[in-house]
Design a protein around this nucleic acid. Structure first.
Lengths: 229, 229
DNA sequence: ACCTGAACACCGTTCAAGT
DNA sequence: ACCTGAACACCGTTCAAGT
């Protein structure tokens, strides 16, 4: 009857398409590029068109986070059943890590929005259950769950050598500048900083970096846990 | 001779005055209120006047962070001499905590700017020295120093019940909304979240909160440290 | 239901000019 | 040295209107 999805016919907007475009744009040009007007331009539409799909920009950003968090593989974390709680917690955090690592540019949006969506609450419930097994009170669990999430975020956004958006295009140049700045420091006053300089500007092994980050957090929770595990 | 600092005579602008005003404004109305134009308005000056003192807005923000970081009591951390490294590291982080807690609104500016100023480098050098004592390689030390700083930042900005800027004026209202959102959750599906609900919306004891946060990090570093301490 | 047009109140920043 | 005036290229958002 009517033409459907033929070439050149533009599909109507939808929340999904907008969120897709926003994530892709952030990946390519950084979070600052994600603008109502820019998004509209890319979709060949008026800025106000977006306001039919989202109440305001903030809800759109909420949507981005929900999309990310929803793709966390929660079952994988539950498959580690039978293992001690801290090991299962590590698996859960590892699953969060792989999801967020894929889109580092939007990760800064996560902390304030994580518990605003159903998928985020599911992940939180899971983490809290594991911490309960570790013997923590509900209050302590709440704090530790928050800090666990923040540790992951921090690992992703703080990865040395990670450059996002337009920074990425002039990548080599950026790194050289940073290295130069560090190397111009007084060798006697900043002995340790200079020795660690390379560690601040890039990371030798990505897996070593993320493993140490996870180890650090897990060792911490175990250290403060009442139940010897 | 000439009138000097009499009432009604407006002192000229200066980098110090601008940074002062910016911090005060952030404390009072949140970081979004800190705008070149708003700052100029408050100082009774044209927006472009600020560009004589700072190259652009980013350098102004750098200035804010430098001011904060410079007020970290580094000697206090060194006074703990003779104590084991992890204890001295805890003291150092505690000093950072008191400084940042005083101005939570500007804390989000810190991570990317911390090592851009001399005071920040001094603090970093100090932390790296302690980690070296703990037996870490320079690379590991670099990562752990970054994560230490991020843990502090996260503790301050993540304090449950903390509201910044205009959020603060409608404080009670905000908290009630948050509580209501949590309480409307399915009791069987989100059992743990509900049990921890109060911990997500406010914190019973500020000192317990910050102590657990510091304990967590220190236990973590000790746990992954090669040197038994 | 889904989108446009015009307008408003904001931003940061440049550039030439004033004292 | 320190600041102003006018202008530019952006923002998010509202409101009334179109199909």
């Amino acid at each position: 009857v009517a033409k459907k999805s033929t070439a050149g016919v533009k599909e109507p907007l939808s929340r999904e398409r907008i969120v897709d475009a926003a994530i892709a744009l952030a990946d390519a040009e950084g979070l600052e590029a994600v603008t109502i007007r820019r998004l509209a331009l890319d979709q060949g539409v008026t800025p106000m068109a977006l306001y039919w799909h989202f109440k305001d920009k903030d809800r759109l950003l909420d949507g981005i986070v929900e999309r990310l968090v929803a793709s966390i593989d929660l079952p994988a974390a539950e498959r580690a059943d039978g293992q001690p709680w801290h090991l299962r917690l590590r698996v859960l955090l590892g699953e969060m890590l792989v999801v967020l690592r894929a889109h580092p540019a939007v990760v800064p949006l996560v902390p304030t929005r994580f518990m605003l969506s159903e998928p985020g609450l599911d992940v939180t419930e899971c983490a809290l259950t594991l911490l309960h097994e570790g013997g923590f009170t509900p209050e302590q669990s709440a704090q530790l769950a928050s800090q666990a999430m923040m540790s992951i975020i921090q690992l992703v956004t703080g990865e040395p050598g990670l450059l996002v958006g337009e920074e990425a295009v002039a990548r080599e140049q950026r790194l050289r500048t940073k290295r130069a700045a560090l190397q111009s420091l007084s060798p006697e006053r900043y002995q340790r900083v200079l020795a660690s300089a390379e560690g601040f500007v890039a990371c030798g092994s990505e897996t070593a970096y993320f493993d140490l980050g996870l180890d650090l957090f897990i060792a911490g929770v175990r250290g403060v846990a009442p139940e010897p595990a």
